[in-house]
Design a protein around this nucleic acid. Structure first.
Length: 421
RNA sequence: GUGAUUGUAGCUCAGUUGGUUAGAGCGCUAGAUUGUGAUUCUAGAGGUCGCGGGUUCGAGCCCCGUCCUUCACCCCA
């Protein structure tokens, strides 16, 4: 059959088999965020474009080339949200959450949209799960969020994930560092192509995480931002490392780790896997103490991380981790003869009234074998067979499809037994 | 946005130097089996070979364009 339509580039259909994994993961995510004291928030899928430009930075790729922007009928410029932090911060301010006990700890699970070329582990619509702790400058907050992320991955069964940690210091640190870095790179301008020369002007920090082989030695010997940290920033960074050590969270320092969003300061981190190809980051986040003030609120420190659900599922496949929550129907009813049709329907709705997952073949095909085969294919654990024999004795035949044993028992007994599980 | 790569049945793929009616396995449907799932056997459905144009007596195969897939860059989850 020739289909007229298919999903837009970079999007996927979330099919039942995928959702079996998704739901099992989401369950653990919800459990852990609750255990760590976070509450759920969701924001609209689109916001005023201005919000993203202001927060992520005009020169950031997310804003300059990846935004899905449209004008609504009222002439407003709106954009599908490319990331979660700025909408959550907007919601925090708009709903006066600064009047709640601080810090306010929020988690989310919501779709994001970025106009990018799709690639392994990268989509145009993807779903991010993440947390934001707003209102705490405490190093404990950094540690607790990283701790949450790692417990999550541990519970999912991951082994061999790496945490990369760095500190970007405060604004003054970065200004000072930038000047130093530019001076350093200027000595190697001959090795830079046009693209990198432009980058050097716009955002020299980005050169640090280059994949260009011939630039790597130069980057290797570049000044390190951690050597420029203020006393306060250095204390914060060292205390965090101590906390992580205290709680046996392994990490490696990576002074070349810079993140793509302009609002970060001090702590930044990424969780990476070596089995994902070029897109190796499973989660990323950091501290953004200046963003709330930038949005018109009182100066308020904050820390958070975000991570991609689809990439997580992709990573779990690569790590051979299997997790799923069956969505198969539990009981399949088989009407063995047409005289039993009415009774079969009655039993079905009795079972459903008792909230036992059950179904039947709406075509009421005569062949028992065909109906049983359908039951098996649908993954039902039990079949209940009803024919003239059962009608006479007022019993039902309960067949365990796994052990292939069957017995004749009454409906109340079946209900009692299935509900006990 | 840049570079490369892919497209034949629901899925995985074959298809000769361009040649007549495009195949296989799996899956699906039906029957063998009128109250029992597997296996087996038999039969069947399912393709304008991504789309558009060109070359040719003739195109799944060659050429151009386009879309999609995949991978990498940029960047990111």
């Amino acid at each position: 059959m020739k289909l007229k339509y298919h999903v837009p580039r970079g999007t996927i259909d979330y099919l039942p088999a995928y959702f079996e994994k998704w739901k099992a993961i989401e369950k653990i995510w919800r459990k852990l965020t609750h255990v760590y004291g976070f509450k759920e928030i969701q924001t609209p899928m689109f916001e005023h474009t201005e919000l993203f430009i202001r927060s992520a930075g005009e020169t950031s790729d997310i804003v300059s080339k990846e935004l899905y922007t449209f004008e609504d009928r009222g002439g407003r410029s709106l954009s599908l949200r490319p990331e979660g932090t700025s909408p959550v911060v907007r919601a925090y301010l708009e709903n006066s959450m600064n009047n709640l006990p601080q810090p306010v700890k929020l988690f989310y699970l919501m779709p994001m949209f970025r106009y990018e070329r799709p690639q392994a582990g990268r989509l145009r619509q993807h779903t991010q799960y993440g947390v934001e702790t707003i209102g705490s400058a405490s190093c404990f907050t950094d540690a607790e969020v990283i701790h949450l992320a790692m417990s999550f991955y541990k519970e999912l069964g991951f082994d061999g994930l790496k945490i990369q940690l760095n500190s970007l210091g405060d604004k003054e640190t970065r200004e000072k560092y930038k000047i130093n870095l530019i001076n350093y790179f200027n000595k190697y301008l001959g090795d830079f192509d046009e693209e990198y020369k432009l980058k050097l002007q716009k955002n020299p920090l980005r050169i640090l995480d280059t994949k260009e082989e011939n630039l790597k030695p130069i980057v290797e010997n570049a000044p390190k931002i951690t050597d420029f940290l203020s006393v306060r920033s250095r204390n914060h960074f060292e205390t965090l490392q101590n906390y992580l050590n205290d709680y046996q969270i392994e990490f490696s320092l990576n002074t070349r780790l810079v993140r793509g969003l302009d609002y970060y300061n001090d702590t930044v981190f990424e969780v990476t896997s070596n089995k994902l190809g070029a897109q190796d980051a499973i989660a990323g986040g950091g501290r953004y103490d200046g963003l709330i003030e930038q949005f018109g609120g009182k100066s308020t420190p904050a820390f958070g991380f975000g991570a991609g659900m689809e990439r997580l599922i992709f990573a779990m496949e690569k790590h051979s981790l299997n997790i799923q929550e069956s969505s198969n129907v539990e009981v399949y009813l088989v009407a063995a003869e047409s005289v039993a049709k009415q009774r079969t329907m009655d039993v079905l709705f009795e079972l459903r009234k008792e909230r036992i997952s059950s179904d039947l073949d709406p075509f009421f095909e005569d062949k028992v074998g065909k109906q049983l085969s359908k039951a098996a294919k649908l993954g039902a654990k039990f079949a209940i067979i009803i024919g003239s024999e059962e009608l006479l004795n007022d019993t039902l035949t309960l067949k365990n499809l796994e052990s292939e044993t069957q017995e004749k028992i009454s409906l109340p007994e079946i209900i009692a037994r299935l509900k006990r599980k």
